[in-house]
Design a protein around this nucleic acid. Structure first.
Length: 152
DNA sequence: GCCAACGTTGGC
DNA sequence: GCCAACGTTGGC
């Protein structure tokens, strides 16, 4: 069992959207970065913990807790010419992009970026690193415990 | 809207 | 395989 931080733009999919989705579950569509894909494909497993992070918005930060509820499978949007995530170079035989399903666990009072930076326990978090753009980053068990127990 | 940082592309 | 140009991310 591992722990992750996953970014989502709330305009596209917020923690409330996740809570309102059928089965409180959404497929994590749209990842088009190899490192993030590899995390989902190679490292994630059912039951992994997810910090649901709102990015590119007025109040960036961790907005809730979720969990991984599927193994990785091909992201259907890569095959859809009408989707913004369409990838003409991907085929059904050799799909390039994978995703997992993520299920709502709970909403928490927003833990802002500024708050995250206040705690030395979290200084090593990848999401806090300068220039970090990865939309999926590993979280250590200690970081997970600190955030879910002390901050959430 | 700005811009730093980073990933990808493509010519050579 | 190098690397310049370009596009994107994402906080501010």
């Amino acid at each position: 069992m591992r722990f992750w931080l996953m970014k989502s733009e709330p305009d596209e999919a917020s923690i409330d959207d996740l809570a309102a989705a059928p089965k409180r579950t959404l497929p994590w569509t749209g990842v088009r970065n190899y490192q993030a894909r590899n995390f989902m494909r190679d490292m994630m497993g059912i039951g992994d913990g997810v910090l649901f992070y709102h990015s590119s918005c007025p109040e960036p930060g961790i907005a809730g807790i979720a969990e991984v509820v599927s193994d990785a499978y091909p992201d259907p949007t890569q095959f859809d010419p009408k989707s913004p995530y369409y990838d003409a170079k991907s085929t059904r035989e050799t799909p390039r992009w994978m995703l997992v399903d993520v299920r709502f666990v709970k909403k928490i009072p927003l833990v802002s970026l500024a708050q995250l930076r206040e705690h030395p326990e979290l200084a090593g978090m990848r999401v806090l690193a300068k220039g970090n753009r990865l939309s999926i980053t590993p979280v250590t068990e200690d970081e997970w415990r600190f955030i879910t127990k002390a901050l959430a």
